[in-house]
Design a binder for these strands. Structure first.
Lengths: 93, 93
DNA sequence: TTGACATGCAACTAATAAGTTGCATATAAT
DNA sequence: ATTATATGCAACTTATTAGTTGCATGTCAA
């Protein structure tokens, strides 16, 4: 059974940096924290540290929007769309 | 042409009190600020002042999620679902 | 026109959240 | 083993925002 924490999901989506992270994750199946960090800084011109991004990831993971596993030296991160499925139900349709 | 301020929309949805406001507005076609205030306080047990709610409404209106007109003594408020339509496009479907 | 009612505006406080710095730990490669 | 690489953790600072108080404005009814 899946915990429905709409609150955490909406909060997570409220930050623009986190939405860019999801945009990036939406493009490839999985990515390391390091890869993601360089992409955000280089491609999106964000001025943020790796630790800053790690905190955003913690928020996204808490909301269930991101899942991650440690693979050797790397932390592999992937987008979980499930919490988004019926998010706007009750207001739309 | 409609301005697409996803940023303001996501921010607006990030607060639980504002989501309750939308829930209430979703139930009837329009409501006065006064009506809304009493509903939030009585029905939802929120401890918040009228001014606090007015500020939330300003945020929602900025995001285009709410529209309001002054009718005589009252301010009539209604839910505008339009900004929600394709909000999750790019991530879902 | 006077009083009651509904709302608007602005300054302030308090809570939350974004982002940083500094250091520790774990794995890979040489 | 030792070094470089990738990440984890915690305390701190700063920015943002929720919420309040106090007063002003506008409208309706008597």
């Amino acid at each position: 059974m899946i915990k429905d924490n709409r609150d955490a999901v909406f909060k997570a989506l409220g930050d623009p940096t986190r939405r860019i992270i999801l945009d990036e994750l939406a493009e490839r199946s999985e990515m390391t924290l390091f890869e993601l960090t360089t992409r955000l800084i280089m491609k999106h011109n964000l001025s943020i540290t790796r630790q800053g991004i790690a905190k955003h990831l913690a928020v996204l993971e808490e909301a269930g929007l991101v899942q991650s596993v440690r693979r050797g030296k790397y932390r592999m991160i992937r987008f979980n769309r499930e919490p988004l499925r019926d998010l706007l139900k009750g207001w739309l349709d």
